[in-house]
Simulated assay, not measured.
Amino acid sequence: MKIRHKTTQTLLRYFTWVRGRDTAPLRSAIDPSQLKTELPDIFILEKGMDGHVRFRLAGTRVCQVLGQEVRGEEFLRFWRTRDLHKMKLSFDTILATRVPMLVDVRGISDQVSAADYEMLLLPLRSTPSVCDRIIGSLSAVSAVRSPYSLGRRLEATAITILHDAVPEAEELDDLEDDSFYIDKPMTRPFGHRPTHLRLLQGGRQD
């Protein structure tokens, strides 16, 4: 299985390092300063008491792809009807099993030609015992003619469960192109372990 975008690589590596021996990291352990370059492609989702999954936070490029500010919007409303059940099941599976997923996404728009994206979905705990959030990224892997206000409808073309398969840190450092194969657990540190959360713009404090 091949990961194609550097944002996906970096977020997956950071997630694997920050969670340590846990199945999913605490939200308070995520330090956005470690992901400065990737922040425009990153988002956080939360499953509410009503069972709906909503964007808590979203980077500028995520909002550009979806054609609006998405904070507070339901995650599923941006997907094609035939993918709604599949994506809801994927979200519930990630929270229940705390296993990351990679989604190959086709962005469909009436205004411009379709574009391909890579979406990473990673489990996140709001408390030590509650896993109710996902940190993810949405990154273009094909040319996007116009990045602004596309209002694309998303289509899931493939979904891959990642289990504990992530690359060695030295394998990432030695990459000569923008892709790698996931086949080994990461064993080396990402950087200084964060001890607090620096919030992205928006969202409630908890």
Rank of each mutant, 00 (worst) to 15 (best):
110 D>G: 07
195 T>E: 10
118 E>R: 01
87 M>W: 07
146 S>Y: 05
168 E>M: 09
150 L>G: 11
84 L>K: 14
109 S>A: 08
186 M>C: 14
105 V>L: 06
90 S>N: 12
109 S>M: 04
173 D>F: 06
158 A>W: 13
94 I>E: 01
182 I>D: 07
114 A>Y: 12
171 E>L: 10
157 T>N: 09
115 A>E: 02
95 L>C: 03
133 R>N: 01
168 E>N: 08
173 D>R: 05
150 L>W: 00
114 A>E: 15
181 Y>V: 12
104 D>F: 11
156 A>P: 14
89 L>P: 04
88 K>G: 01
156 A>V: 14
180 F>L: 15
178 D>C: 10
120 L>M: 06
113 S>Q: 08
99 V>N: 10
87 M>L: 11
173 D>L: 11
174 D>W: 05
92 D>R: 02
182 I>S: 04
113 S>V: 11
127 T>I: 03
131 C>M: 01
150 L>E: 08
153 R>C: 09
143 A>K: 15
120 L>P: 00
107 G>C: 06
119 M>G: 03
112 V>D: 09
152 R>D: 13
172 L>I: 15
173 D>Q: 07
123 P>M: 03
92 D>S: 07
146 S>I: 13
144 V>K: 00
99 V>Q: 09
96 A>F: 02
142 S>V: 05
85 H>E: 13
187 T>P: 00
134 I>L: 07
180 F>Y: 14
195 T>K: 06
176 E>Y: 15
112 V>L: 01
196 H>F: 13
170 E>C: 09
122 L>S: 05
114 A>K: 15
114 A>F: 13
111 Q>N: 13
94 I>R: 05
179 S>H: 11
180 F>N: 06
153 R>S: 11
179 S>T: 11
136 G>K: 01
135 I>L: 04
120 L>D: 03
107 G>T: 02
116 D>G: 10
130 V>D: 01
183 D>E: 08
131 C>V: 05
82 R>K: 07
103 V>I: 12
183 D>Y: 11
78 F>I: 03
123 P>K: 02
156 A>T: 14
172 L>S: 12
92 D>Y: 08
93 T>P: 02
125 R>M: 12
100 P>D: 07
190 F>C: 03
189 P>K: 07
195 T>P: 00
121 L>S: 05
179 S>I: 09
163 H>A: 14
191 G>Q: 03
145 R>Y: 10
150 L>H: 01
